[in-house]
Design a protein around this nucleic acid. Structure first.
Length: 369
DNA sequence: AATATCCGCAACCGCTCCGAC
DNA sequence: CGTCGGAGCGGTTGCGGATAT
């Protein structure tokens, strides 16, 4: 049985709001405050769906909203957050005071996506398109020549999430004193594509400085990308990379953070024994098509330890990665699951991130973290 | 000047989450 | 525990203005 509609849609007005309607909402909120939006139309004398009233208020009428253009700093932040957490617009919008999720989403879809594509960056993976096509060719056996200026097409979009699943990271070094820059990116477990080819354009290499803030080291984005969810599932033992690393940092900070991160990843492996590629191997399609299984077996022989039984169950492996909630659950399972879900760990990370890296924004936010 | 096309934004839709009962 | 309903979310649509022809 389907859920009944929240209002009689045939009898409510739809479409653009008039100034008079806006005034009624504003007057109502000024008197009664917000809450129980289904009652608002009746009490405010509006022939609108309550949900529509709520949206109008949240996206347009709220007094704390900014209606001016996005600043370069905001653009930069949106891109970096999208890179890290994807299209979770409400989460991203929370880091941008005065902006709504709708604002951010629209701005992304109409401006930022195109900007990235123009410089040869895939807006889904935030990797150079040439590299994605290259890697996709390597895995599927298709020989796709590098094409740095190719705009995103459907193949690229499909390759994006696929690549997340299919790219095999290098096995972790047994020594934590390995070259931080390379080992750090190689150990990425979420964004797995390491930049081991050098056919990027100068524009792509300057991606982090794209919006002409302080040009960070080229690896900074990867540090951010390589935030290791599995390693950081236990928040107490694995702090996030520093704020400098997050937003582009002196290389010293990056290296130090990277070493710590790598150490954590090694520890996480030995204690949890569950890396992203464990999941990949459980996907029979990928394993059989990419020649991945064999290499994995070798790695597993090295890694095999007390937690070797932690291979995700087939139901987890079969989860539709593109589905948000399923993806969360799956990553949660990969994180060692147990009592803390992926969502919880994400929220923990957000809190940590805000406290350690965006304290100034946290101060300004009215939202409860 | 008229028409076609493009683009950005506001609004809607359908879904999930979550608390109350 | 299941149901209901409000709230919130991300994706999509469609209108209206801007620009190109």
């Amino acid at each position: 049985m389907g859920r009944p509609p929240c209002c009689d849609k045939s009898n409510v007005k739809r479409g653009l709001w008039t100034p008079e309607e806006d005034a009624k909402i504003l007057a109502y909120v000024a008197t009664h405050g917000i809450g129980n939006w289904t009652l608002v139309p009746k009490k405010a004398g509006l022939n609108r769906c309550g949900k529509s009233c709520r949206l109008r208020w949240t996206n347009y009428l709220r007094p704390d909203l900014k209606h001016d253009n996005f600043t370069p700093e905001e653009e930069e932040l949106i891109i970096r957050l999208h890179e890290a957490i994807g299209s979770r617009w409400s989460v991203i919008a929370r880091q941008l005071p005065g902006r709504t999720d709708n604002d951010v989403k629209n701005y992304w879809n109409t401006k930022l996506k195109k900007k990235l594509q123009k410089i040869g960056i895939d807006p889904i993976t935030h990797k150079p398109i040439s590299k994605i096509l290259n890697d996709f060719g390597n895995i599927s056996g298709i020989n796709i020549p590098p094409s740095p200026n190719t705009t995103t097409n459907s193949a690229t979009h499909q390759a994006g999430p696929f690549m997340r699943k299919a790219f095999k990271p290098e096995p972790p070094s047994s020594s934590t004193t390995a070259t931080p820059t390379s080992s750090c990116s190689n150990n990425s477990t979420i964004m797995m594509a390491n930049n081991n080819n050098n056919d990027h354009t100068p524009q792509q290499d300057n991606y982090n400085g794209f919006f002409s803030l302080t040009p960070p080291p080229s690896a900074a984005a990867e540090t951010f990308l390589s935030w290791d969810f599995s390693a950081s599932a236990s928040a107490s033992s694995s702090p996030l990379p520093s704020a400098e690393t997050f937003l582009g940092s002196p290389r010293e900070s990056f290296s130090s953070s990277c070493q710590q991160q790598q150490q954590q990843q090694v520890e996480a492996q030995t204690t949890q024994g569950l890396m992203w590629r464990e999941f990949l191997v459980s996907d029979s399609t990928l394993a059989s098509s990419s020649g991945f299984q064999h290499e994995h077996d070798e790695e597993k022989a090295i890694e095999e330890g007390p937690s070797a039984e932690l291979v995700p169950p087939p139901s987890v492996a079969a989860a539709d990665f593109s589905a948000r909630s399923d993806g969360d659950d799956m990553v949660g399972a990969l994180c060692g699951g147990g009592s803390s879900s992926f969502v919880e760990s994400m929220l923990d990370k957000e809190r940590e991130m805000m406290q350690s890296q965006f304290p100034q924004l946290l101060d300004r936010l009215a939202f409860d973290y």
